[in-house]
Amino acid sequence: MTTSRTRRPPRIGEKPVFRNTLIAVVLVLVALVIVAPLAIIGVQAFSKGAAFFAKSITDRDTVHAIWMTALTALIAVPINTIFGVAAAWAITKFDFPGRRLLLVVIEIPFSVSPIVAGVAYLFVYGLQGLFGEALQSADMKILFALPGIVLASLFVTAPFVARELIPLMQAQGRDLEEAATSLGASGWRTFFSVTLPNIKWALLYGVILCNSRVMGEFGAVSVVSGNIRGQTNTLPLHIELLYHDYNAVGAFAAASILASLAIVTLIAKVALERRGAGRIRRPALTGPALAGPKLETTEPGISQP
């Protein structure tokens, strides 16, 4: 005899009321906070027709801003990629004093407001700053010019690549490099044929995140660039300018470029995540496959003191 239990209590946290309310709240918030604003960019950008959109984004200053943004990314991303790989390598493969401190310092740009970075650079390289006069007399322009923008971007995006690589390289350990070296490979050979292939997806993932941040950075760049239209304006700064000019459609058109960049980044990110990047603990292919019970012939405890 079995008694059918039609009214079983729900699993913990799955009361219909609770469940439905929670899902609804999340969906509404996502729609209001994330989807709607992005949709508005698209709608507004084309609100005066495709022709006006085309004219807005081919405007001389806008094109220059796009160029500035691309140039900044072309300089800052490779530098931070090399920095990230070097830092991750140093931290995970060597023991040296200050290793832990370095780990913390690399992460500082994540926790510091970008505007602080901008102001700091202003203080170092500005006319009244530490090197201001020296730079002035050497006729080197750092602030309110491309070098300043690149420096500020470098600061803000310094952790991106390193942060992706460190956990992965830590999990991989030094065994692979040691194995390659014991087989006679040189340092460079080991790096290019053993280390790099095993970190490539995480590396690419870090590079993409780094790139999207460089292109989108506003705070730090706005302090050091001086916002000179057609000269030191990056795309995010230019969008703000257009908006202040009451050129809403132009602003939205320019913003739609950044938004599409974000979408491309997102797609690339998801694609890379499928290949195992971005996950902290990728199952180590080199690890033990069968961690079976160990054959112990000595039973401890019989004659231990």
Binding site: L176, A179, T181, P197, L285, G287
Partner: peptide, 17 residues
């Protein structure tokens, strides 16, 4: 190590994945 001419086998194999 690279010139010593030893063959080293690691506990966790260290095969290149």
């Amino acid at each position: 190590v690279r010139h010593r001419g030893v063959g080293f086998v690691f506990q966790h194999y260290a095969l290149f994945p």
